[in-house]
Design a protein around this nucleic acid. Structure first.
Length: 353
DNA sequence: CATTCGTGGGT
DNA sequence: TACCCAAGAAT
C-alpha cells in the first residue's frame, strides 16, 4: 500500500468531501455534466470578487438570461450594462467586464483563451480570476488563492505571520497541496470548505474533513488564523445631493469613469468631505429632507443631505445628463446610495400627499 | 507594499 | 450597535 504524503492526503480528503457535499451553484456544471461554460465561469468569478454568493445569485441569473454568450455581452451598450450592474458594487468590475468581453471578441475570436497567462492579460482579470478560470473552465493545474484559501491554508499549516506579509508563504503552501488532476474541483472545494466549515468565526472543526490534517485545530484557538494586521479607522464624511425635478422628470448625471461610483448614473452632488460645498447647482425653492441618507462605503461613511426642488423649462440643469421619468426611477440603474436618496424623496412626497 | 473601490449579511 | 467580512483588481 502506497503511503500518502501529507500534501497528497489533504487533496484526496478534500476532493472526497467535494464529491459528496459540493454546493450546487448556477455557474457550476451539474455533477456528471461536461465542463462548465468558460463564459459563465468568468462572469461568476468577476461578480464574486469581494461579493457573497447570495448577492451574486440574482445578478448572475439576470446577466446570463439577457446576455447568454460573451458575444452578446460584448455587443451591449455601456449604459445598459452599468445599469444592470447597479447595486452590486465595485463598478470598475462592470467597466472591465465589458472591456474584457470586447477583447475576447476582438482578439480571441469570441473564445476565451485557455491559459492562465492569456487570461491574466484581460481587463479585470487578476491573478486569482485567471487561475480560477484556467482551473475550473479548462482543467488546467493552477494555484487558486482567494480569501477562503488563505484562511484554510493558514489554519492547515498554522501560519502565524500576519497578512498581507504571509501571502508568499500561503501561496507556496497552496501550491504544494494543489493536485495535478482536478485542480478546478480542488479550488472550488477549498472555497466551499471556507464558506461552510472553515469559516472566519466559529469554524465547525468538529465536522471538518481536513481535521486530521490541520495544525490549527490542535491549538487553543483555530479561529485565530490567519493573523491580520490592524485596520485603520473609517472616517466620516458629509455631502449634498440635489433632486432637480421638471415635468415629472428628474435630472440625472453620469459620473466620471474613474473614481467612486465611476460611470454610474447619479444625482448631481457635492464633493464628499468634512466641509462639502453646499451651494445648490441652480437657483430654486429648495427643500431639505430632515434625515440625511447614511451610507457606508469601504473606506469612509457618508451622510448625504438630500435637497429637492421643482424647476421650470427655462432653467439649465448642471453638467452632462438626462431628464429621467420619476415614475421609472427604479430602472435608471442608480447605485445604492442614490437609489436610497431617491427613495427618501419619494417617501417625503407620499407623507405630504 | 498601501490605497481605492460598494454593498449586504452575519455576529 | 459596531464591527467584520466577502470567489480581488488596478494603480
Amino acid at each position: 500500500m502506497r503511503v500518502e504524503g501529507r500534501e497528497t492526503k489533504i487533496a484526496s480528503d478534500l476532493l472526497a468531501f467535494y464529491d459528496v457535499h459540493a454546493r450546487r451553484l448556477p455557474w457550476r456544471a451539474p455533477p456528471g455534466a461536461n465542463a462548465a461554460d468558460p463564459y459563465r465561469v468568468w462572469l461568476s468569478e468577476v461578480m464574486l470578487q469581494q461579493t457573497t454568493v447570495a448577492a451574486v445569485g440574482p445578478y448572475f441569473a439576470k446577466f446570463t438570461e439577457r446576455w447568454p454568450t460573451v458575444g452578446d455581452l460584448a455587443a451591449s451598450e455601456d449604459a445598459d450594462l452599468m445599469a444592470a450592474w447597479a447595486g452590486l458594487g465595485y463598478y470598475a468590475r462592470a467597466r472591465n467586464l465589458l472591456a474584457c468581453a470586447r477583447a475576447v471578441v476582438r482578439d480571441h475570436g469570441g473564445v476565451f483563451p485557455d491559459t492562465e497567462e492569456e487570461l491574466r492579460a484581460l481587463p479585470g482579470v487578476g491573478a486569482y480570476t485567471a487561475a480560477a478560470v484556467a482551473a475550473i473552465a479548462f482543467g488546467r493545474r493552477a494555484v487558486v488563492v482567494d480569501a477562503n484559501v488563505e484562511r484554510v491554508v493558514a489554519r492547515l499549516f498554522a501560519i502565524d505571520t500576519p497578512l498581507p506579509a504571509a501571502r508568499p508563504d500561503i501561496r507556496a503552501a497552496a501550491d504544494r497541496i494543489t493536485p495535478d488532476a482536478r485542480a478546478g474541483d480542488f479550488a472550488q472545494a477549498m472555497m466551499d470548505l471556507g464558506a461552510t466549515i472553515c469559516t472566519p468565526r466559529n469554524p465547525a472543526c468538529g465536522i471538518c474533513p481536513l481535521r486530521a490534517d490541520c495544525a490549527a485545530v490542535r491549538t487553543a484557538d483555530p479561529a485565530a488564523y490567519p493573523v491580520k494586521a490592524e485596520k485603520k479607522a473609517r472616517p466620516h464624511r458629509l455631502g449634498h445631493g440635489w433632486w432637480i425635478e421638471r415635468d415629472a422628470h428628474v435630472w440625472l448625471v453620469r459620473r466620471p469613469d474613474k473614481g467612486l461610483l465611476g460611470g454610474m448614473r447619479a444625482l448631481p452632488s457635492s464633493d464628499w468631505s468634512d466641509a462639502p460645498d453646499a451651494t445648490p447647482p441652480l437657483a430654486a425653492r429648495w427643500t431639505t429632507i430632515d434625515a440625511p441618507v447614511a451610507h457606508i462605503f469601504t473606506h469612509f461613511s457618508l451622510a448625504l443631505s438630500v435637497h429637492h426642488a421643482h424647476v421650470g423649462a427655462d432653467v439649465t440643469p448642471p453638467g452632462e445628463g438626462e431628464w429621467w421619468p420619476v415614475a421609472r426611477i427604479g430602472e435608471a440603474g442608480l447605485p445604492t446610495l442614490f437609489a436610497r436618496a431617491a427613495e427618501a424623496v419619494r417617501k417625503e412626497r407620499d407623507a405630504r400627499d
